[in-house]
Design a protein around this nucleic acid. Sequence first.
DNA 1: ATTGACCCCGTACTTATGTACGGAGTTTAT
DNA 2: ATAAACTCCGTACATAAGTACGGGGTCAAT
Lengths: 125, 125
Amino acid sequence: MKTIGKLAKELNISIETIRFYERQGLIEQPLKPESGYRMYGDALTSQLKFILNAKALGFTLKEIESLMSLSDSCADIESMGLQKLNLIRNKIADLQRLEKVIQDMTDSCKANQDPQSCPVINSLK
Amino acid sequence: MKTIGKLAKELNISIETIRFYERQGLIEQPLKPESGYRMYGDALTSQLKFILNAKALGFTLKEIESLMSLSDSCADIESMGLQKLNLIRNKIADLQRLEKVIQDMTDSCKANQDPQSCPVINSLK
DNA sequence: ATTGACCCCGTACTTATGTACGGAGTTTAT
DNA sequence: ATAAACTCCGTACATAAGTACGGGGTCAAT
């Protein structure tokens, strides 16, 4: 059993963040003995780790809430994963298009002889 | 000279968005004759188009403000472009890592025989 | 037993990019 | 000339994911 401060340090997040997740309903408020202090055991600790892991994968808190409520139904998880995969691939494609546009932009700057007029700015106009 | 409503329709944005850009200092408040109505000419129209084009390239409003203040200095524009390019490439790399992780995730779901226990959920735990 | 570190709660603030609302004045069309 | 449509302004609200603050109670060490 550890206090919120220890837990926060262990997980490398802030106390406020833990309280925030609690307010958001992602985790339960732990038992609070006489002192009124939250005391965290292994269950909540690993729930929080779960949240942090999922967050690192790019899931939003809302999605994580769904993930946690899906109770191990593999098909549901797979379908969420596939959805996410779609989003990710679209985002990558968007960024690659963008990359090309900006690459061309800077190339045309490099090639430009007249320092008074920028082809990029001109093309945006 | 057109009113804000016409301009908004022409650019396919909302009146509020135009007023918002004005509040943010991205564009000047246009002259307002007796009526008190904003009247937009070509200059402001193309400034707004510039903003929308740059936004479509993924620049933030803050960056666009800089872009507009750089007064055609090609070197400055090029350097902003290169910076942006870096960001974009990092973001793409991140997303590609993520793509792989989630791909593996859903693969392991597909391969899973026991519908009662999901390897993804288990690995997050 | 006192001091410093820790925790409580509720609330407000942050960033970015707008959107929505409401009451009032203006312009346009019939 | 009256109604509908448009615009004005300031303010509040929205999202996501927290961060910060302030006044108070509690715990641990000296």
